[in-house]
């Protein structure tokens, strides 16, 4: 218990830590959440994991410099994200597309929301279908089958850098068309 008015070294540390974490939070939260969203494909999970990462950072025993903290923050966040992905793939067997939709959307969407989501899906499908064949195959293997760049290169008899280029061009093309 530390109730004295004069702060103990420990409490001073604590306060400093909070100030530092607050600063890291201000500077990094946006980047962290976008980073996590890219890893988790879910804005909700991204928020969640970012929050947990900050909480864990507050609990650190050793004082750290800011530059250390930011690297540490991303490291913690990445680990939590990886844990999530693992437990997700464990339940993948019983997870259906609709559950995936639900994970991204609010809980229990109405029929019109489902309808809209499906129309959007048609749109996305059409855009992907517009990709040149090799580009599309590379993208589909990478995205849907989880095949690595190297394996795709082997399968398609291309260089790895070409596969990377195809995936990059394909994703950029589709992303350009997704914003309306």
């Amino acid at each position: 218990m530390q109730q004295e008015s004069a702060p103990s070294p420990r409490a001073e540390n604590e306060e400093e830590r909070r100030a530092v974490v607050a600063q890291v939070y201000r500077e990094h939260n946006t980047a962290l959440i976008k980073y996590l969203n890219a890893k988790l494909s879910s804005p909700l999970d991204a928020q969640d994991v970012a929050h947990e990462a900050f909480v864990r950072m507050l609990r650190l025993d050793e004082p750290e410099t800011i530059s250390h903290l930011q690297a540490f923050l991303f490291k913690i966040a990445k680990n939590i994200a990886i844990d999530r992905l693992r437990s997700r793939s464990r339940s993948l067997e019983i997870q259906t597309d609709q559950e995936k939709i639900n994970r991204h959307a609010c809980s229990n969407p109405g029929q019109d929301v489902v309808f809209e989501a499906r129309q959007e899906l048609n749109y996305v499908r059409k855009i992907i279908a517009k990709l040149p064949p090799k580009c599309r195959k590379a993208f589909m293997l990478y995205k849907f089958e989880g095949v690595s760049y190297r394996e795709i290169a082997k399968e398609m008899r291309l260089s790895e850098s070409m596969v990377r280029k195809y995936v990059l061009r394909g994703v950029a093309f589709c992303s350009d068309h997704i914003k309306r």
């Binding site: 494909s41 995936k100 989501a117 899906l121 995205k143 992303s175 997704i178």
Partner: peptide, 8 residues
Amino acid sequence: FWQQSEQV
């Protein structure tokens, strides 16, 4: 896009 295409 990445997220939406997940459902396709």
